[in-house]
């Protein structure tokens, strides 16, 4: 029975299968638990609560603004890292990606030190324009941008490196200057990468907790985003925490699904 013997030989070793199964259970069970404990019947009513809507609206608006800022500054940074030819480029790349591994609370503290009333930029902003950033909605957006922009930069830089420069050369021979080449050839060709980066960036911003609570505080309607609201609700109203968590879970799954489609479509 050669066929059967082959099957046996291909069987996954128990030493791998058991930890894999345990690990999967560990990843999936909490999400299942969340779904099991969800107050499905009261869900519509709870979702309509003003506090809930405030947090949701604030989160969506600030995460979108942070993504817009990341696109505005991150795409040029990515271009510089991918196409620029200057000394210290690898150092710059390392610096840009630091927020990826930095504990967000540290990022929040750092932002507070720079943009706080006694910080370098904060003092100047306060004296010149009478603007105070910490513990405002602006602070939420800045905190989100700080932690999520590297996701966009890394994604776009990868797309730029993968793009064939010869298309840009072809565009140049057709009379396109460098800026036109960028807007009319490079950008459309790396659009899938930019989109994937923007989605990742947005998802990261939406889940931002540490830097936000440190730099922006936790004021309902102003700086209290969904993750902050979940944390707060956990101490008083478990059901509310579950509902908020469900929304965040749904958004994450939607992001993942959209990215998968993107990636398989590109491949």
């Amino acid at each position: 029975m050669p066929a059967k013997r082959n099957r046996q030989r291909r069987r996954v070793p128990a030493a791998l299968l058991v930890p894999a199964a345990a690990g999967l259970a560990f990843l999936i069970l909490p999400l299942a638990g969340l779904l099991a404990r969800a107050p499905w019947t009261e869900l519509p009513a709870r979702l309509a609560e003003p506090a809930m809507l405030d947090a949701l609206r604030l989160s969506l608006v600030t995460a979108s603004l942070a993504t817009a800022l990341s696109l505005l500054f991150g795409v040029p940074i990515a271009w510089l890292l991918a196409r620029g030819d200057f000394p210290g480029r690898s150092l710059l790349r390392a610096l840009v990606t630091v927020p990826l591994v930095l504990p967000p609370v540290v990022g929040g503290v750092a932002l507070l030190l720079v943009f706080g009333r006694s910080g370098i930029v904060g003092t100047w902003l306060h004296e010149r324009f009478d603007v105070t950033i910490p513990f405002s909605t602006t602070a939420v957006v800045l905190a989100m941008t700080f932690v999520s922009m590297p996701f966009l930069v890394v994604s776009v830089e990868g797309a730029l490196r993968g793009a064939d420069v010869r298309f840009e050369e072809a565009a140049a021979t057709l009379g396109a200057g460098r800026w036109t080449v960028f807007t009319h050839v490079t950008l459309p060709m790396i659009a899938p990468g930019v989109l994937a980066g923007a989605v990742l960036c947005w998802a990261r911003a939406l889940g931002e907790f540490g830097a936000t609570i440190t730099f922006a505080g936790n004021f309902p309607g102003r700086t209290q985003t969904m993750p902050l609201a979940v944390y707060l609700a956990l101490q008083s109203d478990l059901e509310a925490a579950i509902v908020l968590s469900l929304i965040l879970l749904a958004v994450s799954v939607a992001v993942l699904a959209s990215l998968r489609e993107r990636w398989t479509a590109v491949a």
């Binding site: 010869r166 050369e169 021979t173 050839v185």
Partner: peptide, 18 residues
């Protein structure tokens, strides 16, 4: 190149895919 008025047909054409 953009000011040379030289037309180029590239080996693999390099037509803009988008």
């Amino acid at each position: 190149p953009e000011h040379r008025r030289i037309g180029v047909v590239f080996q693999d054409y390099l037509l803009f895919p988008h």
